[in-house]
Write a protein that binds this DNA or RNA. Structure first.
Lengths: 212, 212
DNA sequence: GGAATTGAGATAGCACTGCTATGTATAGTG
DNA sequence: CACTATACATAGCAGTGCTATCTCAATTCC
């Protein structure tokens, strides 16, 4: 058997692509290969082409998101935990809008990375804990509820990241939207509001100041 | 003064771009010019380049959406009307997913077409009527409420159109999400549910059948 | 240890992309 | 009718992703 593919090259190509995205540039074949210190062919041996490289980038980004979600520690308030995971999702996405955009740009690859499912499972688990704790109605479907919370978060994020809404929209609208949805799933209005406030307080990213 | 630009050429270029999008192809300069029966330079005299053409395409798409929203007739149930406008937004978007995607692909042009604001104003107006009719609380901010309903709709649409969620997600999740949000704004749970059902029944597009 | 083999990676050229410098002819004006 | 300013045509630019070809190094066999 002959020479084996160098995993460093593979990793460096993904690094270069993510760096380009973070820098606001469109990752393209030749500059990427140059930045990774290799030739264009490496992209084809390792990823089969640019779509494959895109998929790898998305995989890594979803891995980072899953890791961040995993590091959230469970408190005694599962509803607040649920909101905290939404905060993590939002902050991770806004930290690198170009990357966030790439995550859901299915057109380029046509395949969802496996790690994407993992991040969703975390959300479903949090809903299940909230049901088990008696906060949400027992007949509430955890998957459906997770989907709805996710879709709300995602919708605001997309509109903010495309500048259809100002940056403040996140803090202005997402908490009340969460509360409304949680109340509809059986949580008490006051308890829901309190938990949403608690969960939202895990937000760490600098938010735009009114006197900015 | 000399020769004047032919508005037909301009229109034909936009037509060709929208046709390409509808056909699932990426509109590109030379094929577009050929389809419009002109040369590549026409794109530059009329639009200043491809980004300008993209902006024109988005303008026309938003115009079509605004026209569809305008044609919705007001019933005596303003909350149902509100939901009906969400249905129109969703159906217009799903009718041509590539076009919908282009609408919010700000990266390509950096400018929001003026007609986009008009479509949002329709939504705000519907919320205001719901408040005036006593269905929603008088302290509820129409703009904030409109944003939240829009963001929910948009989030589900994006996830469906990128195939992160199945087509059925629209009918499965949007109505209960609407209801939850409307109840949070002061509408009665039963009245809200009934109005959402009424508004959602304006849906005409074929939805995937369970035995499909 | 030396030789054969097989695939990683380098080079060059393909068709395509949007864009621009240059030409040409045509419509409007004196 | 002559002039001019501009819409549109042509050709060539640098860039894109991809592939055919070549080289050469790493692994396995003897």
């Amino acid at each position: 058997m002959p020479r084996v593919a160098d995993p460093d090259v593979r990793s460096r190509l993904i690094d270069a692509a993510m760096a380009a995205l973070a820098a606001g540039e469109e990752p393209s074949l030749r500059p990427l290969a140059a930045a990774a210190g290799t030739s264009t062919m490496a992209v084809y041996t390792h990823f089969g082409g640019m779509p494959g490289l895109w998929l790898a980038v998305r995989e890594r980004a979803f891995d980072a998101l899953a890791e961040r979600l995993r590091q959230l520690d469970e408190t005694d308030d599962p509803v607040a935990d649920l909101v905290a995971s939404g905060v993590a999702y939002a902050e991770q996405s806004l930290a690198d809008p170009a990357l966030f955009h790439a995550l859901f740009e299915v057109r380029r690859t046509d395949t969802q990375p496996a790690s994407a499912v993992m991040t969703f499972a975390v959300l479903v688990g949090a809903v299940e804990r909230a049901v088990a704790a008696g906060r949400l109605a027992s007949r509430c479907d955890p998957i459906a509820t997770a989907i709805r919370l996710w879709a709300m978060t995602h919708g605001v994020l997309v509109l903010v990241s495309t500048q259809a809404l100002p940056d403040t929209a996140l803090d202005d609208h997402l908490p009340p939207m969460y509360t409304a949805q949680l109340v509809a799933q059986g949580d008490g209005p006051r308890r829901a509001a309190k938990s949403v406030r608690a969960g939202w307080s895990t937000r760490t990213t600098d938010r735009p100041s009114p006197d900015g």
